[in-house]
Amino acid sequence: AQASVVANQLIPINTRLTLVMMRSEVVTPVGIPAEDIPALVSMQVNRAVPLGTTLMPDMVKGYA
């Protein structure tokens, strides 16, 4: 199954992502693919992302 990017902590709005904030997990619905984690580093989220939330393309500025 495809692993997705999941928030490893609460990520406040406009925060630049770092590796420690993200983990890969097989979840439904599928979000951003886990292999994109390196590309997500330093991108900003456009909303607060609670712990355990799957990151979707529309949550990350410049990803989609």
Rank of each mutant, 00 (worst) to 15 (best):
A1C: 05
A1P: 11
A1H: 06
A1F: 14
Q2V: 12
Q2G: 15
Q2F: 08
Q2L: 13
A3D: 08
A3N: 07
A3L: 13
A3V: 07
A3M: 14
A3I: 09
S4L: 01
S4A: 03
S4H: 02
S4R: 01
S4M: 02
S4K: 00
S4D: 01
V5R: 01
V5L: 03
V5I: 14
V5F: 01
V5Q: 01
V6E: 02
V6L: 07
V6G: 00
V6D: 01
V6C: 04
A7F: 02
A7M: 04
A7I: 06
A7V: 07
N8F: 03
N8I: 05
N8K: 08
Q9Y: 15
Q9K: 12
Q9R: 12
Q9N: 09
Q9W: 09
Q9P: 02
Q9F: 13
Q9L: 15
L10N: 15
L10M: 12
L10I: 15
L10F: 13
L10P: 15
L10C: 09
L10Y: 15
L10W: 07
L10A: 10
L10S: 11
I11L: 12
I11P: 00
I11F: 01
I11V: 08
I11Q: 01
I11S: 00
I11C: 03
P12N: 09
P12F: 06
P12A: 11
P12K: 08
P12T: 06
P12W: 04
P12Y: 09
P12S: 11
I13Q: 12
I13H: 15
I13F: 08
I13C: 14
I13L: 07
I13K: 15
I13E: 08
N14L: 10
N14I: 03
N14V: 03
N14C: 07
N14M: 14
N14P: 00
N14Y: 15
T15H: 07
T15S: 11
T15D: 05
T15A: 12
T15F: 06
T15N: 05
T15M: 12
T15L: 04
R16T: 15
R16E: 08
R16F: 10
R16I: 12
L17Y: 00
L17A: 00
L17H: 01
L17M: 10
L17K: 00
L17I: 14
L17S: 00
T18E: 10
T18M: 10
T18A: 08
T18L: 06
T18P: 00
T18W: 03
L19F: 06
L19I: 12
L19E: 07
L19N: 10
L19D: 09
L19Y: 11
L19P: 14
L19K: 12
L19V: 07
V20M: 15
V20H: 14
V20Q: 14
V20C: 05
V20F: 15
V20N: 12
V20D: 13
V20I: 08
V20A: 14
V20K: 08
V20S: 09
M21L: 06
M21V: 04
M21G: 03
M21A: 05
M21I: 03
M21E: 02
M22Y: 02
M22K: 00
M22W: 02
M22I: 12
M22Q: 00
M22N: 01
R23S: 10
R23L: 07
R23C: 05
R23K: 15
R23I: 13
S24W: 07
S24P: 13
S24R: 06
E25N: 10
E25L: 05
E25K: 05
E25R: 04
E25G: 09
E25C: 04
E25W: 05
V26D: 11
V26Y: 06
V26S: 10
V26M: 08
V26C: 05
V26T: 09
V26A: 08
V26W: 06
V26R: 03
V26G: 04
V27I: 08
V27H: 03
V27N: 03
V27C: 03
V27M: 09
V27A: 06
V27G: 03
V27P: 01
T28V: 08
T28F: 09
T28G: 05
T28M: 10
T28I: 11
P29Y: 03
P29I: 10
P29E: 07
V30Y: 10
V30R: 03
V30D: 08
V30L: 15
V30G: 09
V30C: 05
V30F: 10
G31W: 02
G31D: 00
G31I: 02
G31N: 01
G31S: 02
G31E: 02
I32D: 01
I32F: 03
I32R: 00
I32G: 02
I32C: 03
I32Y: 01
I32T: 01
P33T: 08
P33F: 15
P33H: 10
P33N: 06
A34G: 14
A34I: 08
A34Y: 08
A34H: 09
A34R: 05
A34T: 08
A34S: 14
E35K: 08
E35W: 07
E35C: 05
E35Q: 12
E35Y: 10
D36A: 14
D36F: 10
D36I: 09
D36S: 13
D36K: 15
D36C: 06
D36R: 15
D36V: 13
I37C: 03
I37W: 03
I37F: 03
I37P: 00
I37Y: 03
I37D: 00
P38K: 12
P38F: 08
P38G: 14
P38S: 11
P38W: 11
P38E: 10
P38C: 06
P38I: 14
A39H: 15
A39W: 14
A39S: 11
A39N: 14
A39P: 04
A39T: 15
L40C: 03
L40M: 10
L40E: 00
L40R: 00
L40P: 00
L40K: 01
V41K: 05
V41W: 06
V41R: 07
V41S: 04
V41E: 11
V41G: 02
V41H: 05
V41Y: 08
S42N: 15
S42D: 09
S42Q: 08
S42G: 11
M43E: 11
M43S: 09
M43A: 13
M43K: 15
M43D: 05
Q44F: 10
Q44D: 06
Q44Y: 13
Q44I: 15
Q44A: 15
V45A: 06
V45K: 01
V45P: 02
V45F: 00
V45S: 05
V45Y: 00
V45H: 00
V45I: 06
V45G: 02
V45N: 03
N46T: 15
N46G: 06
N46D: 12
N46V: 14
N46I: 13
N46E: 09
N46W: 07
N46R: 11
R47I: 14
R47L: 11
R47N: 10
R47W: 05
R47C: 04
R47H: 09
R47T: 14
A48E: 15
A48D: 15
A48R: 05
A48T: 14
V49W: 02
V49S: 01
V49T: 05
V49I: 10
V49M: 05
V49G: 01
P50L: 14
P50R: 09
P50N: 12
P50W: 05
P50T: 12
L51F: 13
L51K: 13
L51T: 09
L51W: 15
G52K: 04
G52A: 07
G52C: 04
G52R: 04
G52Q: 03
G52D: 13
G52M: 09
G52L: 03
G52T: 02
T53W: 13
T53L: 08
T53I: 14
T53N: 13
T54A: 14
T54E: 02
T54W: 02
T54S: 04
L55V: 11
L55R: 00
L55Y: 00
L55G: 01
L55M: 10
L55H: 00
L55N: 01
L55W: 00
L55I: 14
M56D: 06
M56P: 02
M56W: 06
M56H: 08
P57M: 06
P57K: 06
P57R: 11
D58P: 08
D58G: 13
D58W: 09
D58C: 11
D58Y: 07
D58E: 09
D58F: 06
D58M: 09
M59R: 03
M59D: 15
M59K: 01
M59S: 07
M59H: 12
V60R: 01
V60E: 02
V60I: 06
V60C: 03
V60H: 01
K61M: 11
K61A: 12
K61C: 07
K61P: 14
K61T: 13
K61G: 10
K61D: 11
K61N: 11
K61S: 14
G62P: 07
G62A: 07
G62I: 04
G62C: 05
G62R: 07
G62H: 07
Y63V: 04
Y63C: 04
Y63W: 15
Y63E: 04
Y63T: 04
Y63M: 04
Y63A: 06
Y63K: 04
Y63G: 05
A64F: 03
A64T: 15
A64K: 15
A64G: 12
A64H: 15
